[in-house]
């Protein structure tokens, strides 16, 4: 199936080559994303990510001169909440036990983590 012209077509070759990712890049991305991956997974992801990124490359052909990046899709104003401590009982303070209830390793009323300083 084709979504109009080129939706699933190939990316422009220059850019695709510029941005093509290899397994070293896959490992770098995985490291940035804090996801451990095996060599087999890196090999499989190399093909998948290149396929997807090659496909989204086509956005480069759209003329966006003078267009501001859209951040809020429906016009809205950012509100300030009332300057009151614990204005909302659900999201206010004094909820330590609730907050720790699902922690994998709560310790003495805190989140437990492995040793970070040798």
């Amino acid at each position: 199936m084709r979504c109009g012209e080129g939706a699933s077509g190939a990316a422009s070759p220059d850019k695709a080559t510029d941005m093509a990712i290899d397994q070293a890049t896959v490992r770098k991305i995985a490291s940035l994303a804090r996801i451990a991956i095996t060599d087999d997974e890196a090999a499989a992801m190399e093909g998948e990510l290149n396929g997807i990124l090659g496909w989204v490359e086509q956005l480069g052909e759209v003329d966006v001169t003078g267009v501001e990046p859209m951040t809020a899709v429906i016009p809205n104003t950012l509100r300030l909440r009332d300057d009151v401590v614990d204005a909302d009982p659900l999201t206010g303070g004094n909820r330590r036990d609730d907050i720790l209830a699902n922690a994998p390793e709560p310790q003495h009323g805190f989140f437990g983590v492995p040793k970070v300083i040798e």
């Binding site: 956005l59 759209v62 966006v64 267009v67 990046p69 859209m70 899709v73």
Partner: peptide, 10 residues
């Protein structure tokens, strides 16, 4: 670029 194209789609 995607955010700009999103503006055009809107």
């Amino acid at each position: 670029q995607a955010q700009k194209v999103r503006a055009l789609i809107s």
